[in-house]
Amino acid sequence: MSENPDPILTIVELLKNQNLSKYSNQIKETDFWKKIIPLKLKKFEKTGDFEFIFEVDDSISLDPSSYIVRDFKTAGIISVTDKGMQRSKGNLWEVKITLTQPQAFVFARVRGRDVENSLKVGIFVMEIQFDHSLLDGFGRDGILFAVRVKLRDLLKKAAQN
C-alpha cells in the first residue's frame, strides 16, 4: 500500500454537542462499541488492550431502496491502533477488521477533532478485500453501499450517546 493512497470510501460528519475527550476515554471498552455498532451482535469481547472478537447475525441492505436485503452472519476480529494527535487534523486511529467466514478484510482510518462545540469525525476506508462469494455476487458496489449505510448508522448512534 502506498504511503498516502486515496480512500475507497469517505464519510465525514459533525456530531453536535460531542467532544473528542468523551470518545477517547471510552474507545477501549466493549460497552462503548456495543452501543454504537449498527449490527446485531451475538458476541463482542475484548481480547487485548485494543482488540476485540465478535460474531454478527444481521441483515444488510445492498441498494438505496432497500429492495435487496441479505442476511449476514460472520465472526472476526477488530484491532485498533491509536496513532495519537496529528497536529490540526485531530486524533487518528487505524482500524483493521478481519472476517473469518466469509473471508474479508477492511482497513480504515478514523479521525476525530473538536470544532465549535461539535466533534468532527472522518471515516476513511482505505482497503477492502473480500471473498467473491460474499453477498451472492453483488460485488464491490453492493458491499460499499452496505458499508456506507452501516457507517452512517454508527455515527448517528455515536451522536446519541
Score class of each variant (00 low, 15 high):
I11L: 15
V12Q: 07
N17T: 04
N19K: 10
L20R: 04
L20E: 06
L20H: 02
S21F: 11
S21G: 01
K22C: 11
Q26W: 05
I27A: 06
I27L: 10
E29V: 00
E29W: 00
T30F: 00
P38W: 00
L39T: 04
K42F: 05
K43W: 09
T47L: 10
G48L: 06
D49F: 11
F50Q: 14
F50Y: 14
E51N: 15
I53D: 12
F54N: 06
F54V: 10
E55A: 15
D58G: 04
S61T: 13
S61F: 14
Y67E: 14
Y67F: 12
I68C: 09
D71T: 07
F72N: 00
K73F: 05
T74L: 09
A75E: 15
V80C: 03
T81E: 12
K83E: 07
G84Y: 04
Q86G: 09
K89D: 13
G90M: 00
N91R: 15
N91W: 06
E94L: 05
E94M: 08
I97C: 03
I97P: 00
L99Y: 12
L99I: 02
A104G: 13
F105M: 08
V110M: 11
R113Y: 10
R113K: 15
V115E: 15
V115H: 14
E116L: 10
E116I: 06
N117G: 03
L119Q: 03
K120V: 10
G122H: 06
G122K: 01
V125M: 07
M126W: 02
I128R: 00
I128W: 01
H132V: 05
H132G: 03
S133Y: 10
L134F: 07
D136R: 12
D136K: 13
D141V: 05
A146C: 11
R148P: 08
